[in-house]
Design a protein around this nucleic acid. Structure first.
Length: 488
DNA sequence: CCACATGGTGGCACCACAGC
DNA sequence: GCTGTGGTGCCACCATGTGG
């Protein structure tokens, strides 16, 4: 049996998943595209980490020739090369690629590079299986996990040493060695037997989402106890293991929170539930003109600009709809240049375009407020003006969270992605699926990569798509607010 | 992937009271 | 009066939801 490093990690999470991967690979579900694009952040990180050990030789990835890759690695070691990137090994039934292998004081150190900001338990398992393979043929010194230091703020040139933290995980990796042999034997036996009968459980999504989720969960209805609002995973699975899957199955002695109870009631007896007092209280807090504001941001694991930190939300776009008390709606927008830090110009433009008074409405306001606080910290001359915006904010999600308006199609979620289609199911104007860019993650990813695009026509097209997306976000807020007004 | 807000949970100090 | 149990209330911590 040959296992790749990632298959070993998969097997630790769930035997059934590994069995399916080896025997029924075709049952894999299509990867979640947004998770996929965000995960791509990791690819660039490795190439920066190699700068920590300059002058090494890279083993080129050849999908159909793993043996060739490991042969090349062995040749380089033979030749006395002391730094190898993507060093490849095929030992002891394990196929492993090491981000950086570096010889120091006669021993080889392993450097495993991760785009995350902390060391996770599965990183140690990941490194442990590499050590298990490599220690067969090399004298290994230490194992380091190289991960992003999110406290680093770029100033001018990128400081690669400050960008990464190096965690020595040698001791933990050595401790894990004793159990690996047994684990691999149990994998072997399991793979040669029938599919293990493993029920769904927390392991389906922790620490990773599983490729076979759709397969294993095919009998769970789209809307079930697993959609109960803010119920802990443990409690959901307790219900499930007790045979309770649908809301109708929930016995009355199970204690639910108010929202969960509401959600169950609204599902069994589906009708829109309106509490005019709650909605009225919310609407009374509003002052005209009402500014509906929405930001888009991008993130980089490796900061591109000065005063940027890893994974920081960089605000590059806003849409602003202003509603006057006489019912006139006007729209302003800003979309930064993808080649320069957009934050200064965005701040100035926003301050110029926002009316001097009146409510500022956002959906889940902590996001917009958080960005404004960051901008205030970054630009001392705009600080007071930016901070003065904060107490004008009103959160459009609040009346929904407070159960002032509940539609059974919310299905226990008050995000704008759930609320909007429930309130306006047949309105083509508010249908995101007609847009090229239809969620925030996509906007972030598209803009983050826009500066790499050579074709200027294509860039122009994408900028139009981004503007259309952000404008729809604020228009959605306007429509939701109007809907609340008609409800009281 | 990260940050933040919020709500739920569980641990702990504290108190009352029963039993010895 | 001491001890152990059980109830209560607070707070720290953790999980979840939400945004991008």
């Amino acid at each position: 049996m040959l296992l790749s490093k990632s298959q070993y990690i998969r097997g630790l999470q769930c035997h059934k998943s590994l069995w399916l991967y080896k025997h029924k690979r075709e049952l894999r579900s299509a990867p979640d595209s947004s998770a996929e694009t965000l995960f791509n952040i990791g690819y660039t990180v490795g190439s920066y980490a190699t700068d920590l050990f300059p002058g090494g030789v890279e083993i080129e990835f050849t999908p159909n020739d793993f043996d060739g890759m490991s042969r090349k690695t062995a040749d380089l070691i033979e030749q006395g090369v002391e730094t190898i990137y993507e060093a490849t090994f095929n030992e002891n039934g394990i196929f492993a690629m090491v981000d950086v292998l570096h010889k120091s004081n006669g021993k080889w150190n392993i450097y495993e590079v991760k785009a995350s900001t902390t060391v996770k338990e599965y990183h140690r398992d990941d490194a442990a299986i590499q050590y298990y393979a490599l220690s067969q043929v090399l004298d290994i010194g230490k194992i380091f996990l190289v991960h992003i230091n999110n406290q680093y703020t770029r100033q001018g040139e990128l400081d690669v040493c400050a960008l990464f933290n190096m965690a020595d995980i040698t001791d933990e990796v050595l401790e894990k060695q004793v159990e690996i042999k047994g684990t691999l034997n149990s994998f072997d036996a399991m793979l040669q037997s029938d599919m293990p009968a493993i029920d769904i459980g927390p392991h389906c999504s922790d620490p990773y989402g599983c490729d076979f989720h759709a397969h294993c969960w095919q009998d769970i209805p789209d809307y079930s106890v697993f959609n109960l609002y803010r119920m802990s995973g443990t409690k959901k699975f307790e219900l499930y293991y007790g045979g309770i899957i649908n809301f109708e199955d929930i016995p009355s002695d199970i204690d639910l929170t108010e929202t969960q109870h509401f959600q169950v009631e609204a599902s069994i007896n589906p009708e829109i539930r309106i509490d005019k007092t709650i909605i009225g209280e919310f609407l009374d807090t509003l002052e005209y003109p009402i500014s509906f504001l929405d930001f888009e941001t991008f993130q980089n694991a490796v900061p591109r600009f000065s005063d940027q930190r890893p994974y920081m939300q960089m605000t590059f776009q806003y849409s602003l709809q202003v509603m006057t008390d006489s019912g006139e709606l006007s729209h302003e927008e800003y979309l930064g240049d993808e080649n320069i830090d957009p934050r200064r110009e965005l701040s100035e433009r926003m301050l110029r375009h926002l009316p001097p008074r009146g409510s500022i409405m956002a959906y889940n306001q902590s996001f917009e407020k958080g960005r404004i606080k960051e901008l205030a910290a970054l630009f001392p001359d705009l600080r007071d003006e930016l901070l003065s915006l904060l107490d004008r904010f009103v959160d459009l999600i609040a009346p929904f969270r407070r159960l002032g308006y509940y539609h059974p199609d919310f299905k226990g979620s008050f995000s704008i992605k759930s609320v909007l289609p429930a309130l306006f199911p047949d309105d083509p104007e508010l249908d995101y699926s007609r847009l090229e860019i239809h969620d925030g993650g996509m906007a972030m990813d598209t803009f983050a990569n826009l500066h790499l695009l050579k074709d200027s026509n294509q860039r122009e097209k994408i900028r139009k798509d981004l503007l259309a997306y952000c404008q729809l976000d604020t228009l959605a807020m306007v429509r939701i607010w109007e809907k609340l007004k008609t409800a009281v």
